[in-house]
């Protein structure tokens, strides 16, 4: 059964149909929240809240967007709201203790685990708007058009945010 059919059934009060939608989209919804928030507990809360909000908002869902795009938008909004309320825990300075020499193979110079931690710290230190687009692009593999639909901004804004996010990451990791 297609998503839009499950949406119609859910809207008519069929909770089992909505359960099917949750099971179908929970992996990616959780992954987006996890990458934005960085821990399991917050990600689970945000993803569950997003599904519940989607359920209560089904009456207003016009179906012009795909259900999953609409759902991811709710996940992103809830997660970025939570991020903005948090105090920043990691500074870009912390992420840039040692420069990464991008011209050599960095994996040969640094322990892979340490490298992962430093890159993760640099991503963590990005402002929520920049972090969202870089995560949706790099880890969710979304196209510019998909990202634009999720964050409800023009494609030009997506491109601009990606540019600035990458610039900041390069500066944090001292790659340029």
């Amino acid at each position: 059964m297609e998503d839009h059919q499950l949406v119609e059934r859910s809207r008519a009060g069929d909770v089992a149909a909505f359960e099917e939608l949750v099971k179908r989209h929970q992996a990616r919804a959780y992954a987006i929240a996890y990458r934005l928030l960085g821990n399991r507990e917050d990600a689970q809360e945000a993803a569950q809240d997003a599904f519940a909000r989607a359920y209560f908002a089904l009456a207003g869902f016009r179906g012009t967007a795909q259900f999953r795009t609409w759902l991811y938008r709710i996940v992103v909004n809830l997660s970025t709201d939570l991020l903005r309320r948090r105090k920043p825990e990691v500074s870009t300075e912390d992420a840039a203790i040692q420069p990464v020499d991008g011209r050599a193979n960095p994996g040969e110079d640094l322990d892979r685990r340490e490298l992962r931690q430093r890159v993760s710290a640099a991503v963590e230190a990005l402002p929520p708007d920049l972090k969202t687009v870089i995560l949706l692009r790099e880890f969710e593999g979304m196209s510019y058009a998909e990202i634009a639909r999720v964050i409800r901004r023009p494609i030009g804004t997506v491109m601009s945010r990606l540019f600035h996010a990458r610039q900041r990451l390069q500066q944090s990791l001292r790659m340029s």
């Binding site: 991008g102 931690q117 880890f139 990451l169």
Partner: peptide, 9 residues
């Protein structure tokens, strides 16, 4: 940078 991000995640 893209390679590093993919490794990191």
């Amino acid at each position: 940078l893209r390679g590093l991000l993919r490794q990191a995640h």
